[in-house]
């Protein structure tokens, strides 16, 4: 691993990263956590870098998290939303890419509804590309912030049992979690109705748990995925009410769970569907620490892709 490009040019997913590279990102995120706790939340490593946040899909949390990460590293940023841009006038992704390239930007953060869009862009421009979620493929920074949150709680990922619950079929968060957790030595299970579990999960090394009670009894942590309303409309589940009754993470189901069971959720939550409010707001939940860690992890990724040394202080990061 050479200093200067420890992750390569882009971050399109966790599938093709090594355990060492993932650890490096998590380790690099640690000191960045502290930056966000300062009264003046800014360090200089990306001064003079221009970054485009290219969002072809609505996003609040991820876009804002990236934007804070970029600004706290002193980068100049531009947000492009697909609505109102040339994309809505029929421009193809390849033309969008070439135009960005022609403006000599340094990095692109892309969110896109098509699986593979981030890689498509990465192969066509010299700038660094960071995948902020592509279709049902990957959402690597979400996977990383989940890992960081679990590491904060348990000290290490190795040996942890993590159950990913709900709509794994349509979830990029699930895929990034599966790769990251397996690479760092966790055991991974998927739990949900068979209509929402993709084919071949077992071949990836994921255990299938058919019932949420089994997952709660087995896991150290549950990562509860959002159930989108469209899934009911397209017939994957009969009703949100039944989904909550059979697969919801409820206080009753957690009654016998160990105190240190941790519950993650990538947000935005459907309270009363996949997760009940008193669970989301209760002692098992680490949902808000996840959001806090999101900024630190994204700072780490931006910093490393920009060529930062694994110890960012070596580049003159300011001490408080």
């Amino acid at each position: 691993m050479t200093i200067g490009a420890p992750l390569g040019k882009d971050l399109v997913g966790l599938e093709h990263l090594t355990a060492d590279q993932i650890q490096l990102i998590l380790d690099t995120a640690e000191p960045f956590k502290e930056v966000s706790e300062r009264p003046i939340k800014k360090v200089p490593p990306l001064r003079g870098k221009t970054i485009v946040n290219l969002f072809f899909e609505a996003s609040t949390r991820t876009r804002i998290s990236f934007e804070f990460a970029e600004k706290r590293l002193s980068a100049d940023t531009v947000n492009v939303a697909a609505q109102g841009s040339s994309v809505s006038k029929g421009e193809t992704l390849v033309d969008t890419a070439r135009n960005l390239e022609a403006m000599r930007i340094d990095m692109v953060v892309i969110r896109h509804p098509a699986s593979g869009a981030a890689q498509f862009l990465a192969e066509r421009i010299r700038s660094n590309v960071i995948n902020a979620g592509d279709g049902k493929h990957e959402h690597p920074t979400q996977g990383l912030l989940d890992l960081l949150t679990l590491r904060d709680r348990f000290g290490a990922i190795k040996g942890l049992k993590v159950a990913i619950c709900g709509d794994v079929l349509h979830s990029r968060v699930a895929r990034s979690n599966i790769w990251g957790l397996l690479k760092l030595g966790a055991e991974v299970a998927a739990c949900g109705p068979a209509t929402l579990l993709p084919r071949g999960l077992a071949d990836l090394g994921v255990t299938i748990l058919p019932r949420i009670e089994d997952a709660i009894g087995w896991a150290n942590a549950l990562n509860v995925l959002r159930l989108q309303l469209e899934r009911m409309e397209s017939g994957f589940v009969p009703s949100l009410r039944e989904y909550n009754r059979i697969f919801g993470v409820t206080r009753d189901r957690l009654a016998r769970a160990p105190n240190d069971l941790v519950i993650l959720h990538p947000g935005p939550m459907n309270r009363g569907v996949e997760i009940d409010s008193d669970v989301a707001d209760g002692p098992h939940s680490v949902i808000l620490p996840q959001v806090t860690n999101g900024v630190a992890v994204r700072m780490a990724v931006l910093y490393l892709l920009a060529g930062g040394a694994p110890d960012w202080r070596a580049l003159g990061g300011e001490e408080r």
Binding site: S115, K136, R175, P198, R199, L204
Partner: peptide, 13 residues
């Protein structure tokens, strides 16, 4: 094709 590659790539099979 619906199978492990589609699952990994996040494409509908």
């Amino acid at each position: 094709h619906e199978g492990i590659v589609a699952t990994r790539l996040g494409l509908k099979g």
